[in-house]
Amino acid sequence: MNFLGHRRVLVVTAVEPERQAVLRGLSGAGVAAESAVMVEAGGVGSAAAAAATARVLALGRFDAVLSAGIGGGIGVPIGGTTVATASIAADLGADSPDGFIGLDELGFGTATLATDPELVAAVTAAVPHVATGPVLTVSTVTGTLAGTRDLTARYPDAVAEAMEGFGVATAAAQAGVPFVELRTISNPVGPRDRDAWRIGDALEGLSEAFTCLAKLTP
């Protein structure tokens, strides 16, 4: 059985509720996850996500890797779905009196990893009303107006913020496996208002997205 045109796919979420949402979406379309897809809750943050992804990739053959979960939307409404054209480690760099200096500018490597164009095309074709653009990976979720202004000024094309994508992307890139990131939106990026978050709606959207993806299975 194939999934997204690949024999075997690894889906990495941060936490168990996201993993269960993905599994519900797959089972809702009649896909037995173990036959085509392995879904792993790798932990919160880029380091945990990278370590978990690398561990699983070392144990078996996979043809594609998806970082999946919920996140904050940048110009994308709550309940919306985003697919990354690149995963960017938005706060990997150095602070300075003149502002943030990114890893690329420092000359120590890159903080941007492009996603696989074929996977992006497949996901956007399968899931309705997807917003595409860079998805930012941060270690500290943005929660102030000043932080939001700084972030969006540096990354004006970004569509979402989360905490794991760049870590999953790094492990996939080092293993030579195609990668993409999918996020459903639980809250807008901006001043922190926990009461306005809609985590349940975002998890439901995650399930629906994977039901759509599963329907691509031959």
Rank of each mutant, 00 (worst) to 15 (best):
V37P: 14
E164H: 07
G60Q: 12
A121I: 03
A86H: 09
A173I: 04
A169F: 04
E204Q: 10
V65L: 12
G99W: 00
A126G: 01
E181R: 02
L216F: 00
F166N: 05
G102W: 03
V65D: 12
R149L: 12
V44A: 02
Q174R: 15
T110R: 09
A122R: 13
L59S: 14
A50Y: 04
I74Q: 00
V177F: 06
T148F: 07
G165R: 07
L92C: 12
G45H: 01
L203M: 12
V12P: 04
V15P: 07
E105Q: 12
F166T: 10
A175S: 15
D116R: 06
V189P: 00
V138C: 00
G72H: 03
E208Q: 08
L145T: 14
L203Q: 08
T112R: 15
A125K: 11
L10D: 03
T82P: 06
D63M: 06
A47I: 15
V12L: 14
A125N: 11
R7A: 15
R194W: 10
G43N: 04
A14M: 10
G205T: 02
S27V: 12
V180F: 07
M1A: 13
A158G: 02
G165C: 13
L145G: 10
G143E: 09
E118F: 02
S207G: 05
T144M: 08
A89W: 06
A202L: 09
A84R: 01
A125R: 13
G102V: 08
D91P: 04
L216C: 02
T112Y: 03
M1L: 11
T217V: 14
N2E: 15
L113T: 09
V12F: 08
A51R: 03
T110V: 05
L4W: 09
L92M: 14
Q174C: 07
P97M: 07
I199D: 06
A29W: 14
L57G: 11
F62S: 09
A126E: 05
T82D: 03
T148S: 06
G143P: 09
A111Y: 01
A173K: 13
R149P: 00
C212H: 15
I199T: 13
V168M: 06
F62N: 07
T53I: 11
C212E: 09
A14T: 10
V15H: 10
A32P: 03
E118V: 06
S35R: 15
A86S: 15
G99S: 10
D150K: 11
L23V: 14
A29R: 09
G71N: 01
V189C: 00
F166S: 13
D104V: 13
T217M: 08
E118M: 04
I78Q: 08
Q174E: 11
T152Q: 13
R154L: 11
E18N: 06
Q20G: 01
F108L: 15
V141R: 00
P128L: 01
P117N: 06
G147I: 04
G176Q: 03
A125I: 01
A121R: 12
A49P: 09
M38F: 08
A114C: 13
V56I: 15
A49M: 07
R8A: 09
L113M: 12
R24H: 05
G109K: 08
G25H: 03
A89D: 05
L103R: 11
S96W: 04
A126W: 06
L10R: 05
L182I: 15
T85A: 08
A41V: 12
S207K: 02
G93P: 11
R198S: 05
D98L: 12
L151C: 03
A172T: 10
N2P: 14
V56N: 05
